[in-house]
């Protein structure tokens, strides 16, 4: 009679079990293996010597913050793009031509010129900003906050241009917009030089 090998005893299957039912010799061996297995099952458990929860929790909270930041960055990025696009469309469609056309008195003429100047300054600042702002600004809260402000202003400007006249309001909005762009440029300039400094240090 061919007995089961150790390997067959360890890895039991239906055929092996059939043999075991008929063979006392192999059954005894199988019982010894079962005894070893029982002892293995009874091995002591170990207690974690340190509480890892604080670091696990910290990692989880950091992960959540990172996630939050990423989604707020995405939102800011969206606003940044839409804001640039809107402002560009206002500038390109020659809004300032409309400004002159809507002015018919001397007083209005002076104000219209001022608005015109503001639009040019906005255009210039916007170009500067565009050339500077890169990926490194994506996580900058202040930059993101200001671009959102810019977007709100653009929406207001668009509404103002839907109605004729109202030069005073236009003047006010373009001035506010100019201030925002100056601030944005300052942030991106700082960031830009920090990044260049970093690069210089690395070299």
């Amino acid at each position: 009679m061919m007995h089961l090998t150790d390997e067959q005893l360890i890895a039991r299957d239906d055929v092996n079990d059939l043999h075991l039912a008929e063979c006392e010799h192999c059954r005894l061996k199988a019982e010894k293996l079962a005894g070893i297995r029982q002892q293995l099952q009874k091995l002591p458990t170990h207690k974690l010597p340190v509480d890892l929860w604080p670091s696990v929790k910290q990692a989880e909270l950091t992960e959540r913050r990172k996630h939050q930041l990423e989604s707020s960055e995405k939102r800011a990025k969206f606003w940044q793009i839409s804001s640039f696009a809107l402002a560009a469309s206002l500038l390109v469609t020659g809004v300032w031509v409309g400004v002159f056309q809507s002015s018919n008195s001397q007083v209005d003429g002076g104000l219209a010129e001022q608005v015109n100047l503001l639009i040019d300054q906005n255009k210039e600042l916007q170009l500067q900003l565009k050339s500077r702002s890169g990926r490194e600004l994506e996580g900058n809260f202040e930059f993101n906050r200001l671009t959102q402000e810019l977007d709100k202003l653009d929406a207001r400007l668009q509404r103002v241009y839907m109605q004729p006249g109202n030069l005073i309001e236009k003047n006010k909005l373009w001035s506010m917009r100019k201030i925002l762009l100056v601030e944005l440029n300052l942030i991106s300039k700082d960031r830009h030089s920090i990044e260049s400094d970093k690069k210089a240090i690395r070299i």
Partner: peptide, 13 residues
Amino acid sequence: LASESLFEQEWLM
């Protein structure tokens, strides 16, 4: 690999 003597005695006990 093949053996037949692994579980002949109660060595682990």
